[in-house]
Amino acid sequence: MSVKRMVTKLALAFAAKKGMEVFRGAGGMSGIRDMLAGNASPETQRGGMLGRIGGTRTSDSGGLGNILSSLGRAGSAGGSEAGMTGQISPINQSLGNLFGSLASAFDERKSPASVSDALNSEFDTTDIQSDAEAKTIIRAMVQMAQADGHIDDAEKSALFDIMHDASPQDQAILQEALSEPVNPKAIAADTPQHARKEVYAAALLIGNPDQPQEKAFLQSLASALELTTRDVEALHTAVGKSYLA
């Protein structure tokens, strides 16, 4: 499993955990798990989950339906991760494009292309270049998801069901991230200089700056990563999230 695919699945799973309406209608964590495993009923795929979360948008790999289809069709064998026919999955593209597709799919008021362009212009790297970067991105997402509480055993079980095709090494990274306490300073200490904005954006993608505990986490992470006010505001603007101030 590629790290980008793992990041995508985590983003979708954590969005489900946070109770977004489209996921509640799709059956929450178990619905996401069934969709990614290819077990969703034809009715769910046609008129339920895919219909509610943007499965008809095909021009630019946007819509959670297309992203989910891309992941489901890839299967456990890896290899081709293309989604719809003739369409390039965002998980084969740059980090900016991946985050842009996800951000737009969560909030369809923004086009994937516009979000991707904005993020690509801010990011200092276009891809995950090392295990260190991969781990800090995963840790930032996990800790963001835990900032307003915790991830219980049932949710952990669902996460590992979703990650069934991950390598033992990738599953170990996730298990380690789930086990450590929320500590944005520790994440920042392990983040390579050129990956600071990418790590922050990964947390922001599933975070809600309007929620006090999540806002506090983002503030601490931004400070620990030594991001400027301008850097943070640009990333929030790109993904359509409220500013921290």
Rank of each mutant, 00 (worst) to 15 (best):
Val3Pro: 09
Lys9Met: 02
Leu12Glu: 01
Ala13Cys: 08
Phe14Tyr: 11
Ala15Ile: 06
Ala16Trp: 02
Lys18Cys: 01
Gly19Ile: 02
Val22Asp: 02
Val22Pro: 05
Arg24Cys: 13
Gly25Phe: 06
Ser30Phe: 05
Ser30Gln: 06
Ile32Asn: 01
Ile32Glu: 03
Asp34Phe: 04
Asp34Ser: 12
Ala37Ser: 07
Ala37Gln: 14
Ala40Pro: 00
Ala40Phe: 07
Ala40Cys: 04
Ser41Leu: 01
Thr44Trp: 00
Thr44Leu: 01
Gln45Ala: 09
Met49Asn: 10
Leu50Pro: 04
Arg52Thr: 04
Ile53Ala: 12
Gly54Ser: 13
Thr56Tyr: 05
Gly62Lys: 04
Gly62Val: 04
Ile67Ser: 05
Ile67Thr: 10
Ser70Pro: 09
Ser76Met: 07
Gly83Val: 06
Gly83Leu: 10
Thr85Asp: 12
Ile88Tyr: 06
Pro90Glu: 01
Leu98Trp: 09
Leu98Met: 15
Gly100Asn: 11
Ser101Val: 10
Leu102Arg: 06
Ser104Trp: 12
Glu108Ser: 06
Lys110Ser: 12
Ala118Trp: 03
Asn120Trp: 15
Ser121Met: 10
Glu122Trp: 07
Thr125Pro: 10
Thr125Arg: 15
Thr126Pro: 14
Ile128Ala: 02
Ser130Pro: 07
Ala132Lys: 12
Lys135Ile: 15
Met141His: 04
Val142Cys: 00
Ile151Leu: 09
Ala154Tyr: 14
Ala158Leu: 09
Leu159Pro: 08
Leu159Arg: 06
Ile162His: 03
Ile162Glu: 01
Asp165Leu: 09
Ser167Ala: 02
Pro168Cys: 03
Glu176Thr: 14
Ala177Thr: 00
Ala177Leu: 01
Ser179Gln: 14
Pro181Ala: 02
Pro181Thr: 04
Asn183Val: 10
Pro184Thr: 12
Ala186Leu: 00
Ala186Asp: 01
Ala186Asn: 07
Ala195His: 08
Tyr200Ser: 05
Ala202Trp: 07
Gly207Arg: 11
Asn208Ala: 11
Pro209Cys: 07
Asp210Gly: 14
Pro212Asn: 09
Glu214Arg: 14
Leu218Met: 13
Ser220Gly: 00
Ala222Pro: 07
Ser223His: 03
Leu225Val: 04
Leu235Lys: 02
His236Lys: 07
Val239Met: 14
Ser242Tyr: 06
